[in-house]
Write a protein that binds this DNA or RNA. Sequence first.
DNA 1: TTGTAGGCGTTATCAA
DNA 2: TTGATAACGCCTACAA
Lengths: 356, 356
Amino acid sequence: MPEKKNRKRSAGSKAPSIYDVAREAKVSVFTVSAVINNKTWVSATLVRRVKAAVAKLNYRPNLLARSLAKHQTHTIGMVVTDIANPFFPAIVRAAEDAAQKAGYSVLLCNSDDKQEKETLYLDLLISKRVDGIILNKTPGELSAVHRKMLSDAQIPVALLMRSCPNLKADIVQTDDEKGAHDAVAHLIRNGHRRIALVGGPEHVSNAISRRHGYRKALEEAGLSIEPALEFHGDYRIDSGHRAGLALLPLRPDAVLVTNYLMTVGFMTAANEMGMRCPEDFGLVSFDDYPWLGCFTPRLTTIELPKYELGETAVNLLLDRIQGEKGRPRTVTLQPQLRVRDSCGFLRVVHKATTHA
Amino acid sequence: MPEKKNRKRSAGSKAPSIYDVAREAKVSVFTVSAVINNKTWVSATLVRRVKAAVAKLNYRPNLLARSLAKHQTHTIGMVVTDIANPFFPAIVRAAEDAAQKAGYSVLLCNSDDKQEKETLYLDLLISKRVDGIILNKTPGELSAVHRKMLSDAQIPVALLMRSCPNLKADIVQTDDEKGAHDAVAHLIRNGHRRIALVGGPEHVSNAISRRHGYRKALEEAGLSIEPALEFHGDYRIDSGHRAGLALLPLRPDAVLVTNYLMTVGFMTAANEMGMRCPEDFGLVSFDDYPWLGCFTPRLTTIELPKYELGETAVNLLLDRIQGEKGRPRTVTLQPQLRVRDSCGFLRVVHKATTHA
DNA sequence: TTGTAGGCGTTATCAA
DNA sequence: TTGATAACGCCTACAA
């Protein structure tokens, strides 16, 4: 058998296999394998010989074969709605960092928030036998089939920013209700009364939490909830634009926009309508970015700890991969109000003066 | 042999293999394999039986095993400096789209522009036997060892936005010299004379091109090149900030900042120093983003076709994977000047008035 | 048209 | 401490 291998090898110039190394070092494949994996029991002489052969042939173990034999790929799948949405890059970066540190790599998938695409990718990741999946779930349940496949194949999943009604899995999220609440409370403190909401997709858990927080703050302040001031977007620019077109004519004092992309659309609409922030309306946006501080209006935001989100997601996953059997954990990270200039601070001063 | 498999299988609830399906459908593994791969020669009856078994068992082929047998993983590796740099997400998204469309998935790596990390990832990708690599090369050469491994393993690479001195490979890039030239020419048309440059890493090909374009435009206009007005950054925020601190005191009329992150740093420095754009200095930035149009100052930019970059990269790669043997191709996409308000148009009017 | 058996490159079991 | 050799799950000549 080794003979045949020889023939093939010497023909073209393929990547060397463990057999080539074994032959070169005049040892068995077992020994080579042992050296590759730093097993302690190999004699110094053989270690030297093997290492020399490895260097000479530029041998690199075929991780596919290894994965097949060991039933683990050291790969995690990460499916987000869209890496081009600026909310995700930092999260993905953090995940990749944490994964890399632990010897894992990440396969990136974009679902566009479509169930079909998500299903497709889930199938793919399962087929590729990834060791775990970070899932920014599309709204809706996970099919029974996929639940079964995931549990049969023992592939843990960590839910990112979105819970899934019928999937018991670890979750990493931010305290969105609190974030939205703090944002609206801040707006109210600054004197705003009629506050609009540009929310996310109706059935996405974090969008629901944000709406809760929004309403709660309103109620606590004794302000009425006007359904007409609530707009349901989809976290993309265009829906923010539509929201602006629909909401601004209603002349709200201020608005809470629940993600950056929609804020961009909203501001564009405002510009088109000749309305200015914060003069004509106050605004708090979700998500913070380094560039928000150096352009006008300087947005007041609810910062979400993106890096920690990604990092935590893979750490939860890694625990499961290493056999952690406890019940699902939920890690809730704290958002933070970052006050800048888009809330009509001047207006507050004005009111305060009035009161005095 | 199948017996042993049986024993194991019935014990736990592992993912089913092709053998399980064969047994369930009462056919041979060959037939199952044929059906899975839509071979035409299987009789309708057996196809039906196999499909039923597949559905019943929720069978999904183990792509690892398939890859090992077929010597192709249908995976491409993509190594960028940092996905958190807003320049990359759209490119990666485009690449993933194009890859997915062709049945490939993408493994994402961040090199941070460090040779060591790049080397690490290259080793990894080779070991994982990816079918191709999209590489946003760190400055410097590719080691001979890696060149040899890549060619031995027949792994094509497509260089993204950066050429590599000793690697003959397909390249996708933008016409950076033209982009920078157009930017500076625009600045000059607007009346600016002393124009500073915030450039990229000294040995990165696109940074060199951008500097060429900058100087060329200056020369064409008969303006002198002041080395003191050229700052070498690293495409990250902090270096843009340092650039602002160093350049602004020199009171240039305007500045060309060669990427968005550095522009953010530069603007921050300007704010700290109480200098305003475009009143105190004009600015053109590389890279365009949807949000630039709705915040002040509305940046005039050189837009780079990010989506096409990513798409083209994988298409070039796919061609190679499918056996294309021609000599390396270079695809150069055209950047586009997008005029907004950051160039001090008013100033031009002013100067014009003066001259009149 | 279908089945059998060997190979893909590792790891792992069991002797030696 | 080492060496044969059987898995791992799939593909694919070669036979039937």
